[in-house]
Write a protein that binds this DNA or RNA. Structure first.
Lengths: 312, 312
DNA sequence: CATATCGATAAGTTTTATTGATGGTTTTTA
DNA sequence: TAAAAACCATCAATAAAACTTATCGATATG
């Protein structure tokens, strides 16, 4: 049994296809066929059920894949140990970021980070929290920036900052004349929300539900981007909530619609999250340092109340 | 990086010698030299400091060895998964047993076990608790039978039975006329003990110390075997304590010297212990079944008080 | 100072991994 | 439903690697 064989098994399991898996591994399909057969012969067990189309894992196969992933990931840690020892910060690093953080945070730190750590090849992907969790667990992401706490025992979190919610209330809205907004003023029924799957949507819902048990989805107008949310709101379709960083680059004509909350200000906790195995921890810490340093100048709220990003 | 290379690193680290390590791996010394060099080149770090005699691990080397052990052990688990799936109970199994359990317990279950599970190649070694713990942790033992609880977070325990202590009190001893013995009657100073390193010695000391803080080693007459202990006791050198199973095959002339304890009878807890990774769990469970079944007929004490086997 | 120990190195051999070509099934498409 | 495409297995050839024997040089030993 070799690490390479296990790696091939993982590739086939993920792609459910020998040919595609072979491409990803930069070898030809017969190589995978033969190596996986060899492993199956050695173990005297079928890992894949080749009669099914697309190919499927057998029951043992599933267990073997889990263990194989384990071994392959642990093997990466050896280079990690060496890098750590040498203080080397470099190599490929795959970072996920949720959509409502990506456009505001990324421009703030990216330039600084690549300047400070030029050997790191950052691969950044915009993903939902759910996708992020899955990919951190299966090793396709090294870390991610998301709203926390996530309460997942396989994932560790390091808080980067707290980002307050700010109300965006268009002209003509019942709350438009209020200077400061209180959480108790909120009503889900005239609130514009992001579409399902965004944790910022869940955060807002959690905030509102605190005062209303049942949410009536009579008025289902949801968007995938916060920009759209603001425009819809301008059309008089309701108020909405924005993460604080989004309010920094809002048009001046619209900024008069911003209303801050009474303290304790509802806020989301934004963290860098990573697998508990702590692979590539030097790079994670480097990211944390850069981002925390930059945010320190941008957000200075004190009395905040964290809103959970988890649905229900 | 290959599992084989990691295995070679482990062998050299353990033997502190390329030539010996090569023998254990059933390859020649140049193979080890080359493969380890290749790994070091790939990682761009020295794992061994070859200038020291005997050879030493570098600082990174130590960390790499730990991780390598991890990976190599996890790789064994793949065959384990297959065996478990197939219900296959077989292969090499290295079992450690402490000296005071070995001679009485082994004959009781060995024949039954190998008859029931003929495919298991048992390799049994007599080792002290300390040695057992080290070897379970480094993977040189699959399981062991020892007195518990050990309070080691890397080691799991499954209780097999409770074995009461029985007093052996020769003619002429102050306690010889007592029918039943009480714990409070014991005095370390006229008690014959096994030599240092035996947990049965520590168990007895714990039992006595419960009533006496300081143990004066004025009378240091200690033996490595319980047989010798009995003979020394017969010579009038003091009383001693025996594990119950040892009293079953004692000569009839000597059995009159046996005195049981008042309830709650002091006893040791005997368990099968294994690494928390639960490798070869099928065989461990098979052993547990056989031994528990056999002991059920042999020991039937009810009200026991467990004595810790740990020193101090 | 001769000798033994021990790891590195070199050259040659065996084993293993990989490739390109191809064949047999199954699935998809026209 | 026949043709095409997709897909994995197999084969023979080759490239790569792991391993062996022989030997060297450095260090320790008697």
């Amino acid at each position: 049994m070799t690490i390479t064989q296990l790696y091939y098994v993982l590739a086939v399991a993920e792609n459910q296809n020998f040919t595609k898996a072979a491409e990803k591994c930069f070898v030809t399909q017969p190589t995978l066929s033969m190596q996986i057969q060899k492993l199956e012969d050695q173990l005297e067990v079928q890992i894949f059920d080749r009669s099914k189309k697309p190919i499927e894992l057998t029951d043992v196969g599933k267990k073997i894949v889990n263990q194989a992933r384990n071994i392959v990931n642990e093997s990466y840690r050896i280079q990690d140990i060496v890098d750590q020892q040498k203080g080397f910060i470099g190599g490929e690093f795959r970072l996920g970021i949720i959509p409502t953080i990506m456009p505001t945070l990324l421009p703030m730190f990216l330039k600084t980070f690549i300047k400070k750590h030029p050997k790191v090849k950052l691969k950044i992907e915009e993903l939902t929290t759910e996708e992020i969790i899955a990919r951190i667990k299966d090793g396709h992401l090294d870390a991610a920036i998301a709203a926390t706490p996530l309460e997942d025992e396989n994932i560790k979190e390091r808080v980067l900052y707290f980002e307050p919610f700010v109300s965006y209330i268009p002209n003509g809205h019942r709350l438009h004349t209020n200077n400061k907004i209180d959480i108790t003023d909120l009503d889900v029924d005239d609130m514009l929300l992001l579409e399902d799957g965004h944790c910022f949507r869940d955060g807002v819902l959690n905030l509102c539900k605190a005062f209303k048990d049942h949410v009536d989805d009579k008025f289902q107008l949801e968007s995938g981007s916060i920009e759209t949310l603001i425009k819809l709101s301008n059309e008089g379709l309701g108020m909405t909530l924005l993460p604080y960083l989004h309010t920094l680059d809002i048009k001046s004509t619209e900024s008069k619609n911003l209303h801050y909350f009474n303290e304790p200000t509802p806020a989301r906790e934004v963290s860098i999250i990573y697998h508990k195995s702590e692979l590539k921890m030097q790079i994670i810490e480097a990211l944390q340092d850069v981002i925390s340093g930059i945010i320190r100048g941008a957000i200075a709220f004190q009395n905040v109340q964290i809103v959970s990003p988890l649905p229900k």
